[in-house]
C-alpha cells in the first residue's frame, strides 16, 4: 500500500490553464490516465506510456510533478532522455575515473583524501532514488523514449526497477556506499512503440496507451495555448476552424499509407502560434466560410513549413516541389 505520510492523490486538474509564472502549458489528462498514474503509485511499478508523437506522453511527468509539488516541482522532477548509446548504469551514477587518476598522480593530494573523495555523480535515476528517501513527497522520474536505447537497455533496467525497495551500490567507491530508496519514486517511461520491448520488462510495468487527442480535446488544448500568447478576438474565433482543418488533414494523412509523418499536436500549436503572430486574417489571406470551413487565399495552406516536415508529404499536400 502507499507508504507516503502526506499522500496526495493525482487528479489531473492542476494545469487547466497556462501557468505564466512557471511557463507551464495546460495539460488535460483523461480519466483513464489519471487512474493509471494512481495504479502505478499503488503498485510502485513504472508506468509505461505509449502512443503516437504529440499525444502528450512526456508532458505527463511535468504536470504530475506540478500537481503534487506545486511551484517547487522542478526539485522533484528528474528527466532522463534516452539516447542510442545510453546505458542503464548511467541512470544511477557515473564515476569520474579520469579525475581519480589525475589525483593519484598529484603529489599534493594525500591518499586519504582520495579515499574519501566523492568521484561519482548521481544520474537522474540515482537522484530520484535519493530524493525518495530524503523527502516525504514522491519524486517523479521520467525515462523518455525508451525505444531509442540499445536492445539490452530495458533488460538492464530490470534489476534496478525490480521490487518495491530500490537500491544500488557504488561499486567503485573505496568506502561502501549504497543508495537505498525506502519508497519508490513515481517512474514514468515513454515509448513511441517503434520497437518491441522484452516481455520480462513489460511484466513489471503498468501500461497505458495514449490515443491521439479527439477534436474536442485538441480544441481545448489549442484554446488554452493561444490564450497565453494572443488576446486577439478574431484569432480566438478562428481556433475552431483551424482545429477542424488540422483534424481533417491529420485523418487524411493517417489513412494514406504513403504519408511519412502525419501532423501531430506540436505542429498544430506551432501553426497556431505563427498565425496568431502574423495575423493573416487581417488581410483576408485566411478567413472562415459560411459553413465554418477555413478558406485560404489562393487555396493554398498558409505556413505549410510548420505543418509538413517531410519532403514527400510536402509534395503530396501542396502538389508542388519546394526546391
Amino acid at each position: 500500500m502507499i507508504k507516503e505520510k502526506n499522500y496526495k492523490k493525482y487528479e489531473g486538474k492542476a494545469l487547466q490553464h497556462y501557468n505564466e509564472q512557471l511557463e507551464l502549458d495546460p495539460y488535460f489528462p483523461s480519466e483513464g490516465l489519471v487512474r493509471a498514474v494512481e495504479v502505478a503509485r499503488l503498485l510502485e511499478r513504472p508506468l509505461l506510456l505509449r502512443g503516437a508523437p504529440g499525444s502528450g506522453k512526456t508532458r505527463l511527468a511535468e504536470a504530475l510533478a506540478f500537481e503534487l509539488h506545486g511551484d517547487q516541482y522542478q526539485n522533484y522532477l528528474r528527466k532522463w532522455n534516452i539516447k542510442s548509446t545510453t546505458k542503464a548504469s548511467e541512470g544511477l551514477y557515473t564515476y569520474d575515473h579520469l579525475q581519480k587518476l589525475r589525483d593519484t598522480q598529484d603529489n599534493s593530494i594525500r591518499s586519504k583524501q582520495i579515499k574519501y573523495k566523492q568521484y561519482w555523480k548521481l544520474g537522474p535515476m540515482g537522484e530520484a532514488f535519493q530524493k525518495a528517501t530524503e523527502e516525504n513527497a514522491p519524486p517523479i522520474l521520467l525515462i523518455d523514449e525508451i525505444d531509442k536505447a540499445d536492445i539490452d537497455f530495458p533488460n538492464d533496467l530490470l534489476d534496478v526497477l525490480e521490487g518495491k525497495k530500490k537500491s544500488f551500490e557504488i561499486k567503485e567507491a573505496n568506502v561502501k556506499t549504497e543508495i537505498v530508496a525506502e519508497k519508490s519514486p513515481i517512474i514514468i517511461i515513454t515509448s513511441n512503440d517503434e520497437r518491441e520491448l522484452p516481455n520480462a520488462f513489460l511484466r513489471r510495468c503498468v501500461f497505458y496507451y495514449l490515443p491521439f487527442p479527439e477534436k474536442e480535446d485538441l480544441y481545448r488544448i489549442a484554446k488554452a495555448n493561444i490564450q497565453k500568447i494572443s488576446n486577439d478576438e478574431t484569432m480566438v474565433k478562428l481556433i475552431a476552424a483551424l482545429v477542424d482543418y488540422f483534424v481533417a488533414k491529420h485523418k487524411e494523412m493517417e489513412a494514406n499509407p504513403n504519408a511519412v509523418k502525419p501532423i501531430s499536436t506540436s505542429e498544430l500549436l506551432d501553426w497556431l502560434k505563427v498565425i496568431a503572430f502574423y495575423k493573416p486574417y487581417d488581410n483576408e489571406a485566411l478567413k472562415v466560410g459560411e459553413q465554418g470551413e477555413l478558406i485560404f487565399k489562393n487555396e493554398k495552406v498558409l505556413y505549410p513549413e510548420v505543418l509538413f516536415k517531410n519532403y514527400d508529404d510536402w509534395k503530396t499536400q501542396l502538389g508542388v516541389d519546394y526546391k
Binding site: M1, K9, G32, R35, A36, E38, V39, L42, R50, D193, N199, L202, R203, C205, V206, F207, Y208, Y209
Partner: peptide, 24 residues
C-alpha cells in the same frame, strides 16, 4: 486497495488492460 473503489465493469476492464494488456 484502489481509492475510490472500482465501481463498474468499464473500470475493471481498464484496470486489467493497465496490468495485463502489454501490447495494443
Amino acid at each position: 486497495g484502489a481509492q475510490p473503489h472500482i465501481e463498474n465493469w468499464d473500470q475493471v476492464l481498464d484496470l486489467c488492460k493497465m496490468l495485463w494488456m502489454s501490447r495494443a
